[in-house]
Design a binder for these strands. Sequence first.
DNA 1: CCTCTGCTGAGAGGA
Length: 956
Amino acid sequence: RKVPDHVILSGGRNNRYWVLDVEERPGHKTLTLTCSKSLHPTETCLLKDGWEMTPVRRGDVVHLEGHSEGASWVVDREQGFLVLLPDSLISGTSISSSIRCMRRAVLGDIFDGGSKQMLNGTMVHEVFQRAATAKDFSLGTLSKLADQALHSPKYLGDIPSHSRAPSRGQDSAAVVMVTELADIEENVWSPRFGLKGKIDVTARIRIQRPRNGSHRTPEEKTVPLELKTGKESNSIEHRSQVILYTLMSLERYNPEAGLLLYLKTGNLHPVVASHMDRRELLKLRNTLVHHIHNCVEKEAERSRLSRLPDILTNRQTCQYCPQTRNCALYERALNGSSADVSEDVVHDFLQQETGHLRPPHLSYFSHWMLLCFLEASTMEAKNGRKRVWLQTAEESEKNGSCVGNVQLSGPVMVQSEGVFLHRFQRNIAVPQKGLTTSGLASGDRVVVSDQEGLLVGLATGYLCEVSRTSISCTLDRDLSKFSGVLFRLDSDEGVVGLSTHLTNLSRLMENCQDSVCSCSDRLRELVVDLRPPEFIFNLSSVLPREAKDTVANILKGLNKPQKQAMKKVLLSLDYTLIVGMPGTGKTTTICTLVRILHACGFSVLLTSYTHSAVDNILLKLKRFRVGFLRLGQGQKVHPDILPYTEESMRKKGVHTLSELEQLYNKELVVATTCMGIKHPIFTRRRFDFCIVDEASQISQPICMGPLFYAKKFVLVGDHQQLPPIVQNQEARSLGMDESLFKRLELHSEAVVQLNVQYRMNRQIMSLSNSLMYEGQLECGSERTATALLSLPFLISVQSELSSYSETEPQHDLAWIQATLLPSNPVCFLDCSMAGCKPSDIGVIAPYRQQLKSISALLQSSAFTGVEVNTVDRYQGRDKSLIILSFVRSTLGELLKDWRRLNVAITRAKHKLLMVGSVTTLRRYAPVEKLLNHLQRENMISFQCMFTFGALPSIPL
DNA sequence: CCTCTGCTGAGAGGA
């Protein structure tokens, strides 16, 4: 009965109640609730006249609208609303689509859907809205705007050949609207009703109401206006959308009605929002949010997929549904092969949509759906976005996720299409702390709202610069009309769901016969059925004769396993797995591979999970004059790679569609992150090879994303290093942290191991060899094997230490002298330097909290350049000297992972110092194995008996 | 118990 920590309860306008009990009676339902975390006092809420059907359960959070007498609420036909799980904002379109089919609305929330016919509408919208912004509806301007819209990269690949600028008839209706335009594409988050949406046009209207002949002064109102470019249906869906907009903008303008404008005919329909309409739509919302939040149900401690709302048997409605495949897929995934469906229509439908799938496919799909849902539920619980509306700016500032009381300073600059540079500064009236001390830093994603909490989620964007007095950021909307308004900026992290995962999974199950892409069948065979990968035997059949010399030249710089890897990739018909053990030159190998493939004239899609890993390879590639196109947000791309991004290329002048196509097709090599595959380039382009770096750290559904676009693929990784991060314990135990790399590794014929390393000297390498690689890791050269730390001022420091020991004999500093010696490349200090560059030193600790204290001790300027970071963040990198801190007195999860320990001990090139308590650490199996090795090799040389206060300050 | 990177995104329309 305890309220979980992440739940925020409150009274007042955005009240949030915790449901303690639900009592069901025929015809009504009574909730016992509280808005206090202490569970006291309690209130009641009577639900009737249909509200009793709300799927509210014990432990849910609800919002109540209406009046309460004493401590009892009534929600019935005439008054009050109950909003279930109000902090999950549901979009207006989701709700209106649920009118016809609730199942479709739920699926639409889970999977990215969408049909191609919508494209035209999107473009007409854009043209209209641009024209409205410019207040210019002349035909010339319209066709210019239409032209721009057509050539925007958003639409490439889906442009029907007959699309044109809107016809003349559409302008005349449009002119009327523009003069009364208050906003376009206004973004609204309504935490009161659990709604969100983008309002096409916010129109200021004048209502003249003649009554009984007497003249009244015209009434001014601000109302939402919804544009429709298609057939004038005036349908219940369209009208519902408008009604929902009136509800979500209640706080802003309190509109009682909205407008529906059909551009095709120019007809304007007023839509009055009655209490009844709002009531019924909110009930739909509640049902929808219930299904979205309960994708998983628990039975006897085991989770499984929940049933969705029923499949419609009225096939008419399903004809144009974009979710048909997912609808059938989900049903089959739930019921397995036993399609015990009573209705023949449904049976036929399931057969038609999923007949190509066999039981293993369905169980792979349902297994991963479950894993993703579990993970999504954990992420949702941790999601702090609700703080934007449930906490005051002052409260949020305390935990460092917010800056409040700021206002616009200076003009808003248009950086590019849809990117507006804003500058804010603190309201001077109230003396406050500087901005730099707030938890916000440049690069963070932010949400802008007003300080009062009435205009929530006005804009989103990225922080550019945080100085003591001002903050600048790029936002998706121009807020210049809000000059003088007090704002708050909240960091906006972790709002990403798992829709890319789920969409990829759905795609994997696609039947290629009815799809443009022919990769799903093959990928399914390889990934799900684990069909052995095939290879050819003769290199000469793949190597073009004219490339032979170039390739031979490139190969010269490689060692034996690296050459083998190149050969294997060229001979592969399906895929190759390259195991890159620590320090074996993975980046170099990938770079060389790309050069070879490039020289052979093959196209390559180069990806990784992180932007930095992608750019690491590109930085190397750049030196070899291999051209490439880098896709992705400029903000996230390495500065030296920026000239290769689409944005920079386009600035050089892309005016026509064919120029854009040229740009997209020009380079053989295209690089992006695994998540970047939503880019329009992928609607047309296919590649000979796809290379995925860091593949052992990517979850299966994400890793397969880029593979849809290539004939063959290469995964590079090392499953002995860190696996994909999975937050949900149950999902992890069910195998969500198994990467595709690891799954495919059972086909040893596809695996090449890079075991020759150039990072660690012999002794440091021996740790990893004994812990993980069973001696397979080798030094690439004698130089690598014997490289030691160079300490040019060692002698003077040693003598200083000696004299210190003499004057303060109570401190025995022999241990520190011995620790310093380069000839002890691995030391474990059972619970330090001389001329080593700070940038050559890395401090690693498993826990963030530890890092904080360590960094605090290294505040002096002598230590700037010493990088203090977690094991996880150090993966893929190295330093000459690594100090690894194990300090911890209680047991934690992190050190139980062999792979994390392996990463930790393989970061040092020349010297590795480990600090920790042997007795405590012995309780971790992996560390114990390491300690045994250290003991055998006599590397736990020193016992230090000191308290930190007794440490002399040592020049670094 | 505490490791963290990806992402615009709500809506574009047909019956």
